[in-house]
């Protein structure tokens, strides 16, 4: 795996069931995502986008294949570590369609939860969280509960949470699905900025073709395999 690569997947297979009832969702997917790259993952509904994302995120166990995250091979026909949750906590930031913030924690607590679990002191984690919240223009909402914020503000908090553990990888599952066009563009541009400024590899699952021109590359699931393609140029969103 080269130094600029952040994610490398080889011959990844995911199937459900066995024997005659076996259904392959992903069959031999191979691709890489580089640091500082924002990659869109597209496919029709039910093609396995979220499943692929969850396998890369060490949530769903593949059937076979190999996954590298950073310079660590985490899966080769079986998990190579028992602590997949530690990998998630230390290397990966998750962003979802909904914000999925913890409702009983306020904004800054939501953002500092993972860094504090990783051993960062309260002061350090709060300092970093405030930097992130200020970066996303929601520093003044640090002590508000998620229920007191708008959908867009919560989504920005969720992105700040995903970045709080200084991840190498961000996995975003349809982060713009619940947003209008203007806010969607704002979120994707934000992800692009993060990818570049923090040298993070970002995979973003999306159904919205209008967001594709903002990405560096497109990964498309076709016939259970992953095909890489370039971004269509000349979009008005660029």
């Amino acid at each position: 795996m080269s130094k600029k690569q952040s994610i490398k997947v080889q011959n990844l297979v995911k199937s459900f069931g066995s024997g005659d009832s076996r259904v392959d969702i992903i069959d031999g997917a191979s691709f890489e995502v580089n640091k500082g790259e924002l990659v869109a993952l597209i496919a029709p509904s039910g093609a396995g986008k979220t499943t692929l994302l969850m396998m890369i995120g060490c949530v769903e166990e593949p059937t076979s294949g190999t996954i590298w995250l950073g310079d660590e091979k985490v899966y080769e026909n079986k998990w190579l570590t028992k602590e997949t949750r530690k990998i998630r906590r230390e290397k990966i930031g998750f962003i979802f369609q909904a914000h999925y913030l913890i409702p009983f924690l306020n904004v800054i607590e939501n953002v500092t939860l993972v860094p504090q679990t990783n051993g960062l002191s309260t002061e350090e984690s709060e300092k970093k969280a405030m930097e992130l919240l200020d970066y996303f223009d929601i520093g003044d909402k640090a002590h508000a509960k998620p229920s007191e914020l708008s959908g867009g503000q919560n989504q920005r908090v969720a992105i700040a949470r995903a970045l709080a553990n200084t991840p190498e990888i961000i996995l975003a599952d349809e982060p713009t699905a619940a947003l209008d066009m203007e806010r969607s563009v704002g979120v994707v541009k934000m992800l692009k900025r993060i990818a570049i400024e923090q040298n993070v590899a970002v995979i973003m699952v999306t159904h919205d073709e209008a967001m594709l021109p903002l990405c560096d590359r497109i990964l498309k699931i076709e016939n259970k395999k992953v095909i890489s393609s370039v971004v269509p140029k000349g979009s008005h969103l660029l």
Binding site: G57, R85, K86, F104, L113, V114
Partner: peptide
Amino acid sequence: MKEISIMKLIGIPNSI
């Protein structure tokens, strides 16, 4: 359960 699943997903250990 939803919050617990989120916490597990973002890597919070069972012990916490």
